[in-house]
């Protein structure tokens, strides 16, 4: 039996019918073609599927699409403003905060959520906040530098 859900995704209200067992990440990728959100471990450990739900970072592989009914979801595709990258995206670009890039969307969603709560985190706080995001290229050093750059307003 399908369930009708209404979700605001990246500023656009979408209504779709989903199966109860559809995960949020599959809804985003397959129903809405928002493939920027990646699927990694699928066990809520790696963080590559991180999106915002009502403004907070969550792992979309461990949420049902039906649980997102009535919420506001932001994915990596919703981060830029027009042609302008989000300051965190720009900072990852400037600091070369990615290697293969697979973890990057989740990293950007997690770290930009951190800055909403803590606008000037220490290196330790950044690393602690990245506990739920794994970079298998082990490129953490530049990721941390990117977050520091974004926190300093991109300078």
């Amino acid at each position: 039996m399908g369930h009708k859900i209404r979700v605001e995704v990246n500023g656009r209200v979408v209504e779709r019918e989903v199966e109860a067992h559809t995960l949020l990440v599959h809804f985003l990728r397959e129903d809405l073609a928002l493939t920027g959100t990646n699927v990694g471990c699928e066990t809520s450990l790696c963080g590559s599927c991180t999106v915002w739900m009502d403004g907070e970072a969550v792992k979309s592989c461990t949420q049902l699409a039906v649980q997102a009914d009535g919420t506001t979801v932001t994915t990596i595709e919703g981060m830029r403003t027009g042609d302008e990258m989000h300051p965190m995206q720009q900072a990852f670009w400037e600091e070369h905060g990615l290697q293969c890039g697979y973890c990057t969307p989740g990293m950007i969603m997690a770290t930009s959520a951190l800055l909403k709560h803590n606008s000037n985190p220490s290196e330790g706080e950044i690393r602690e906040a990245l506990k739920g995001n794994v970079c298998r290229c082990t490129g953490y050093h530049n990721i941390v530098k990117a977050v520091q750059r974004a926190a300093q307003g991109g300078s």
Binding site: G47, M53, A57, K59, T62, K131, G132, N133
Partner: peptide
């Protein structure tokens, strides 16, 4: 507990 994303849910 776990990490920030898990703690949010």
């Amino acid at each position: 507990v776990a990490d920030p994303q898990v703690r949010n849910k």
